[in-house]
């Protein structure tokens, strides 16, 4: 059965609508990307709680902190590149240092944004956000998960960064699936090796695992939708039980999900590990599929990495 294709930003937009209905404290800020981030759905329904900030991300983030100090639950929306790169010190001092319930939605993340090119492809924010004390980092694997993550983010007293994408990805979870920030999901059981992925790479990882099954390679797949705080137990269990780990992210391998996994594995239960991601490069224009191939982020690349790593086991 062909899966429904929906961008995670759409799930976020729906999550905001649910929050708008249920929680009067929720306010939404946008830095002139209201349609693109799907904040517009909230704006249309709850205009009195929508705050247009113009192209001024630094002010948006600190103003969100002020709103949180005033008792609101703000969601600040912009592209991932700007959220993390443009307002990092504001996130650090105005938001994280005060440990406020400010939620940041960064859309258009990863290389799959496509034709806009390097200036708009957020490839570093997991690292940047992960480095901030008190910050939670969530990378939903599909639209349903994005909706649940949005609703959950509002309940966490500290700041949360939601990493979202523009390109449609298959919906691999079910409405009834339990979603808990910080708790990894094993989406496929297996014993030979574990692939730990986040975001749309979870689907690629699953496709790779299914392909490998035909070659009698039994791979576990973990949807690590929360790179921080990472589910340490799930990582250690995977390392102990399967003896090798491949990480997959549409993001630089410097400081992202792969690094987070390596930090745990290397200090607790060293096993062979391979990180799939962007390696010290900027992005470029192209269509989604071309770019994923060029940067070696497809299920075929994952399969190859798994086979190579198994030899080192």
């Amino acid at each position: 059965m062909k899966k429904k294709m929906i961008a995670t930003r759409d799930g976020f937009g729906e999550g905001l609508l649910e929050l708008g209905r249920k929680n009067k404290k929720v306010v939404v800020l946008s830095a002139d990307l209201t349609e693109s981030t799907r904040a517009c759905w909230f704006k249309d329904k709850y205009p009195g709680r929508f705050i247009s900030c113009g192209v001024a991300e630094q002010n948006m983030i600190s103003a969100a902190a002020g709103l949180a100090l005033g008792g609101k639950v703000p969601f600040a929306c912009t592209f991932g590149v700007f959220a993390a790169g443009r307002a990092w010190n504001q996130l650090s001092i105005s938001v994280c240092y005060m440990n406020l319930n400010v939620n940041i939605a960064g859309t258009h993340c990863g290389i799959s944004v496509g034709p806009d090119g390097a200036t708009h492809q957020a490839l570093e924010e997991i690292s940047l956000m992960r480095a901030l004390p008190n910050m939670t980092v969530v990378v939903p694997a599909d639209a349903l998960e994005a909706k649940k993550a949005t609703v959950e983010a509002a309940k966490i007293p500290g700041p949360v960064y939601l990493r979202l994408t523009r390109c449609a990805v298959p919906v691999i979870s079910k409405e009834s699936d339990k979603f808990e920030i910080g708790r990894a999901k094993v989406v496929k059981r297996g014993k030979d090796l574990t692939i730990i992925a986040c975001g749309n790479m979870v689907f690629e990882a699953l496709s790779a695992a299914r392909g490998l099954k035909k070659e009698d390679i039994d791979v576990r797949v973990i949807n690590m939708h929360t790179p921080k705080p990472i589910d340490k137990k799930a990582v250690i269990k995977a390392a102990r039980e399967t003896g090798a780990i491949v990480t997959c992210e549409e993001h630089t391998v410097y400081g992202g999900l792969g690094s987070a996994v390596a930090e745990i594995v290397s200090q607790n239960c060293p096993v062979p590990l391979k990180m799939i991601g962007i390696d010290n490069q900027f992005g470029q224009s192209g269509n989604n599929e071309e770019l994923m191939k060029f940067y070696k982020l497809t299920s075929e690349d994952i399969k190859l990495a798994v086979k190579r790593l198994l030899k080192k086991k």
Partner: peptide
């Protein structure tokens, strides 16, 4: 002490957020 400050330039934005929240209420 209402807010952490020290990285210059952020206070007026925080104050805007506080003022906005009072206005919304």
């Amino acid at each position: 002490i209402e807010a952490s400050t020290g990285s210059l330039g952020q206070g007026l934005s925080i104050a805007c957020g506080l003022a906005l929240s009072a206005m919304l209420d």
